[in-house]
Design a binder for these strands. Structure first.
Length: 238
DNA sequence: AATAGAGCCAACCGCCACTAA
DNA sequence: GTTAGTGGCGGTTGGCTCTAT
């Protein structure tokens, strides 16, 4: 593997002078071969660092101002669809970088959504929070709630809904098909009257094709039984 | 005025995928 | 098929700024 740290590289914030050099060298050589470009520039920066600085700050046509309401709506919408695929989302927002969107999400939107959810839960406690209070994997009686945020990142049972089938498999291994959790979940399912394929609250409608086969051993089986869909609720704004 | 805590954002890190030799 | 090099991505961190006490 390449030795990416020569030990003689500068780190930390970029100086104006460095920006100028980088801009000039990228102008001359183009946005490629970052390692070679970094060496040729004489900058004591890694190629990776140069690329990042260029992509996130120096690149022409970047917008540096505040995220507009329209942009925010797009971010919310796309995050709902794709989760934290920041680069993918950034492609839909010309002039914005993945890093910028990611930071904006974390510092503004996440909080906003959490606040909305709290309001929601407060307003619909009987139909959501209580009914979805179930044991978790490793904190047997902790409350988890449905937690299907707009972001789609939080699944139920405290597992992010972005969890992959592989991770689910690990979880099944952890829980075991006949684990106490499994049986408690089953008990809970049968005892709750709230469960249905569609759950509505003030934030929208969550659709769960089914709720079964939590202990499915294969991914395909899980998928075919709708378990995968369980972890990735289809969010339909009502 | 001083200080602690919170928020924000630029930059870094580690992993993964792709490609060329 | 294997290995090394490179770029791209998402998560995390460090430090600066702002705000509250």
């Amino acid at each position: 593997m390449a030795n990416r740290d020569s030990g003689n590289l500068r780190r930390g914030p970029w100086l104006e002078e460095e920006d100028e050099i980088l801009t000039a060298i990228v102008g001359a050589l183009g946005e490629k071969h970052w390692d070679a470009l970094a060496k040729q520039s004489g900058l004591k920066r890694s190629g990776k660092s140069c690329r990042l600085r260029w992509m996130n700050y120096l690149r022409p046509n970047l917008k540096h101002g505040e995220i507009t309401q329209e942009e925010e709506d797009i971010i919310l919408d796309l995050h709902k669809q794709w989760g934290s695929k920041w680069s993918k989302i950034a492609k839909r927002l010309p002039g914005r970088t993945d890093n910028e969107i990611k930071n904006y999400w974390r510092s503004h939107l996440k909080k906003k959504i959490e606040a909305q959810q709290t309001e929601c839960v407060e307003g619909t406690k009987s139909s959501t929070k209580q009914d979805f209070a179930i044991p978790t994997r490793d904190r047997s009686l902790d409350y988890i709630g449905i937690e299907s945020s707009v972001s789609g990142n939080e699944g139920i049972f405290g597992i992010p809904s972005s969890e992959t089938p592989d991770q689910m498999s690990n979880m099944n291994a952890l829980m075991g098909n006949d684990s106490p959790y499994e049986s408690r979940i089953s008990e809970w399912i049968s005892s709750t009257s709230c469960w249905s394929n569609e759950v509505k609250d003030c934030m929208g409608t969550y659709t769960y094709p089914c709720f079964c086969q939590l202990g499915s051993s294969s991914h395909e089986e899980s998928k075919s039984h709708g378990v995968w869909d369980l972890w990735n609720p289809i969010w339909e704004m009502s």
